[in-house]
Amino acid sequence: MRLNPIVRFAGSKLLRLGLLLLAVALFTFVLLSLSPIDPIQAYVGADMMLISPEQQELIAQRWGLDQPFLARLWDWLGQLLQGNLGISMVFNQPVIEVLANRFQASLQMLAIAWLISGILGLLLGIASGALEGSWIDRAIRLYAYTLASSPTFWVALLLLIVFSVSLKVTPICCAAPPGVLTEDVTIWQHLHHLLLPALTLSIIGIANITLHTRQKLIEVLHSDYVLFAQAQGERLWGIVRHHGFRNILLPALTLQFASLSELFGGSVLVEQVFAYPGLGEATVQAALRSDVPLLVGIVFFSALFVYIGNTIADLSYPIIDPRIRLGGNLEP
């Protein structure tokens, strides 16, 4: 029986996702069971002295820590399959709820940063590639190379110093003004607090896409068909629009979707600097305060996030590039 190619494509993607999550689960489990951290001590924290060895034994039994390795792994995988990620110790809520709440806060920031860095990076890359060798090109390249090697958290610090401390145009921390209830925060206050973190992330994200777009455009401009177009009297911007744009859009889009991984990592640092209560800040909290269930939940979630980004990139090829569409086969 021949399956619809789209169904087959989706099937293979889901299968791969399942395998990936399984691998991540195995990796995380092995890593955490080898680790010297005692789960009971991590759970009890400073009150460890108040608990007798018998009580510790009881907790270990209740959690199944006395079981052999494989039995524990099997139990845990079973719970995962039912969607039970456990309960976060720091937030005292199911991990799923923490993830949902925190991601909601981060999502807008990530989306704004992703869009700005994509569009601005593409435009700068085009300008730089089309005017290769000019001072504009040099300035853009200097900017991109410098940012590519600056520490994310330091750029965030600099923007904080300039805009929040010196110019006082943006708030210095958090997602809402102090003393205002979550329900009462207006959309403008919200955007106001979102602006600088999002801007930081986009400034950082620009470098990669700019340099790649520039390289690709230069390649295109040195091709035979562009030489022919020039011979026919087409102007530079006409060539960029008609011959360059489609050719550079595909790699740029791939890169931008692949950058979701970097973006997520960047948000951890940026949210830390701006004390923005998003998923990145929760990651740091989970690690600093030994909240293993939450940390594992975030690891899963970030794997899913990166995977979705890459899959969207795969899906967008046939829409943009007719050469891939003509093959009639969605699989690479």
Partner: peptide, 20 residues
């Protein structure tokens, strides 16, 4: 491939945490 499928910083935090 598995290593590339996780954000680098999250992986770093996870391993640094697990090692103690």
């Amino acid at each position: 491939d598995v290593f590339f499928s996780l954000p680098h910083l999250v992986l770093l935090i996870l391993i640094a945490f697990a090692v103690g």
